[in-house]
Structure formats: C-alpha cells, structure tokens
Amino acid sequence: MTKKNINEMSFLDHLEDLRWHLIRSTLAIVIVGTVAFIFSRALFRLIIFAPLEMSFPTYRLLCKTAQFFNIESTFCGEELPMIIQSRTMAGQFSADIWTSITAGFVIAFPYVIYQFWKFISPGLHDDERKHSRGFIIASSLLFFIGVLFGYYVVCPLSINFLANYNISEVVDNQIDIGSYIGLVRSTALASGFIFELPIVIYFLTKIGLVTPLFLRKYRKYALVIVLILSAIITPPDVASQIIVAIPVLILYEISIYISKIVIRNQERKIKKDVRTR
C-alpha cells in the first residue's frame, strides 16, 4: 500500500483495514490458545501451579540469600500455608479457558505486534519501514522478558507474602482458583506491558509528544509513578517494591537514550533535506 493509497483512504477504509488486522490477531490468539487448551494439564502443572511449590527457583534463591545473611525467611518453609479450591460449578473450566487464552496471547504476541506494525507502517517513511523487523523483535523480546520477570519475580513474591499473611489463627487461606490464576495472569501481563516502555517512548518521540529534555526534567515524577506501579503489582513491602522498581527505572533511562537517538536522527534528516534543496 503506497502513501498515495493511504491519503486516498477514507476514515471507514482505515477502520476496515484495522478490523482485518484485529481479526487476524484474534485468530492467531485463538489458534495458539486452542493448542494451549489441549495441553492445559501440563501448562497448569509445569507453569501455573509451579509457584505453589517451595522448590520454585525464586524461593530457593531467596532462601539461600536469607540463610547467607542468617535471616529467618518464609522462603525456606516446607510448603505454602494455602489451599487452592474451586467454589463454583464452572470454576475449573473457566480457569482452563482463560489460562489458555492468556497463553495464546503471550505466545502469539510477536504476530499481534506484526499486525499492528502492518497497520501503521504504510503511513511511515521508507527508511522507517525498513526497521520493521527490528521493531517486532525488540517489542517481542521486551514483552517476553517482562512476562518472565513478572512470573519469576513479582508473582512468587506476591504469592509468598499473601499466603503467609494472616490476621488470626482461626482463618485459613483457602484461595479460589480464579483469584489465584488472576494474580498469576495480572502480574505476568502487567510486567510484560510495563517492559514495553522503551517502545512507547520511541513512538511518542517520533510524533513529538516527548523529548529527552522532557523525560529528564520529569524524572523525579517518573520515579514516583514507578513506585506507585510497583506498589500496585507487588505485595505491600518495601523490598518487593524496590525489586520491581529497579528494572523499570533502568528501562526509563534506556527510554531517554532511545528518545535522544530519535531526535538526533530527525535532526540529521532535516539537515540532509536542507542540503539537497
């Protein structure tokens, strides 16, 4: 599709184009989700319920760290003081369906990003379209790293804290399966989207909404926002919030550098255009 075609397209034509990209993305998620549903027993055993075992890698690492500093820790227990149960007729079926859909979205994410890029790329310059492969790879890589960070760091910290938190000995932690899976899903996906920050900053810089100067000027406000986000997706203890905040702050600094590169390339292009006139 050429730029001329883009300019000649009406608003409804753009909506129709967007609809087909959304349909393709949805079909990819459904197909991969169906495969995940077929192998859901292994998915639940190896991934979803793995953080319930004290042999989970994160627990072992934090337990060894606590033992090294001679600190008593709940990460060194034999089992988590909680029971997963289903209290509704369709509880387990719903958990299976939504977990499969989530797995489908995560695995099909590169294709979803590809469809997003196919929708916006006709409106970009030729040299910008050349970087499509790098955009898809970078976006997918950041998302997968974020999901892994949420699963291996945020999720076990939250589960361990909430499982061991009690207001009275008469209260047992009998957790509904929907609540547990919702925690695993939200922490993994939220972390995945948060790690897309450099990509978001790239596009905001391209359209002129942010600049490196703007990002540096409001760095302290960004720190506050990061801490708030960390408090939302982690248990309410300082250590967990710091663990989550550190990589996000690093991503923010990387975003400043990316914004600087974008501005520099735009200035070079302007100078080049001036010389060729």
Rank of each mutant, 00 (worst) to 15 (best):
N5T: 12
N7A: 14
E8V: 06
S10N: 14
F11S: 03
L15K: 05
E16N: 14
H21Y: 13
H21S: 00
L22W: 11
L27Y: 01
A28T: 10
I29D: 06
T34K: 00
V35A: 13
V35F: 15
A36D: 11
F37I: 04
F37N: 01
I38S: 00
F39G: 06
F44T: 00
F44G: 09
F44W: 05
R45G: 00
I48D: 01
A50V: 07
P51A: 08
M54H: 11
M54L: 15
S55T: 13
S55Y: 02
Y59N: 08
R60S: 07
R60Y: 06
L61E: 13
C63I: 03
A66M: 07
F68E: 13
N70P: 05
I71C: 06
E72Y: 09
F75A: 12
L80P: 02
P81W: 05
M82I: 15
I84E: 03
Q85H: 11
R87G: 10
R87C: 07
Q92S: 13
A95Y: 02
D96L: 15
T99C: 01
T102P: 03
G104W: 05
F105E: 04
V106W: 00
I107A: 13
I107R: 08
P110S: 08
P110V: 06
Y111I: 15
Y111K: 07
I113R: 05
Q115L: 08
Q115D: 04
S121W: 03
P122H: 07
G123Y: 06
D126R: 15
D126W: 15
D127L: 13
E128S: 04
H131Y: 13
F135N: 07
I136P: 06
I136R: 07
F149G: 09
G150E: 03
G150V: 05
Y151C: 09
V153R: 02
P156Q: 04
I159P: 07
I159F: 02
N160K: 08
N160M: 11
L162W: 08
A163Y: 05
I167Q: 12
V170Y: 04
V171A: 12
D172E: 12
N173C: 07
Q174S: 13
D176Y: 01
I177S: 01
I177L: 12
G178S: 11
S179L: 13
S179G: 10
I181C: 04
G182L: 00
G182S: 10
V184Y: 04
T187W: 02
T187I: 00
L189Y: 00
G192S: 09
E196S: 04
L197M: 14
F203Y: 12
T205A: 15
K206L: 13
T211L: 09
P212L: 12
F214K: 13
R219E: 07
Y221T: 03
V226N: 12
A231V: 01
I232S: 02
T234H: 00
P235W: 10
P235K: 06
D237G: 03
V238I: 15
A239R: 08
Q241K: 01
Q241G: 00
I246W: 04
I246N: 01
P247C: 10
P247D: 11
V248D: 10
L249C: 08
Y252A: 03
I254C: 04
I254M: 14
S255E: 08
I256F: 09
Y257V: 14
Y257N: 09
Y257W: 15
S259A: 15
K260G: 12
I263P: 02
I263M: 14
I263C: 11
Q266M: 12
I270M: 12
K272Y: 12
